[in-house]
């Protein structure tokens, strides 16, 4: 194989996911729909299996669109992590992604940080009073 060329396998890998110390960081694409969900799921699961990952962090800082297919991907990983005592987190949710989390109820199953605080928490607090 010529120098600098990556094999097919390597091309599939390392597109969305990054192995960090102690967790798998998933850079959620700009648009996460059914079209993108399959590839992301496959890549994440390969790495989770190969490196026995016990914590997955979905980073939404570059994400503008997500529909219920994306919810499926996150719930699926969350369930798999649950079986092995691991956890799934989501971070850097913009207003739109936050709305998708709220409407789907995902915010109740997946811990969020950086972007889910502030107004939302206050609203929930007020609601409880």
């Amino acid at each position: 194989m010529p120098h600098g060329r990556r094999s097919g396998m390597e091309n599939i890998m390392e597109k969305y996911c990054e192995l960090k110390d102690g967790y798998l960081l998933v850079h959620v694409p700009r648009e996460l729909d059914h079209h993108r969900a399959g590839g992301l799921r496959m890549e994440a699961d390969l790495l989770i299996d190969a490196y026995q990952v016990r914590k997955v962090v979905f980073d939404f800082s570059g994400t503008e669109f997500m529909d219920s297919s994306g919810i499926g991907v996150i719930i699926g990983r969350s369930r798999n992590m649950g079986y092995c005592g691991g956890e799934v987190m989501a971070r850097n949710l913009n207003e739109r992604i936050r709305k998708i989390f709220m409407v789907s109820g995902l915010h109740k199953i997946v811990k969020t940080e950086g972007g889910m605080a502030g107004n939302t928490n206050r609203m929930e607090k007020n609601h409880a009073e």
Partner: peptide
């Protein structure tokens, strides 16, 4: 098996 969340119609109705 395709990990469909089953939320498609709920999203349409919500939005």
């Amino acid at each position: 098996e395709l990990e469909r969340s089953g939320m498609g119609f709920s999203f349409m109705e919500a939005f």
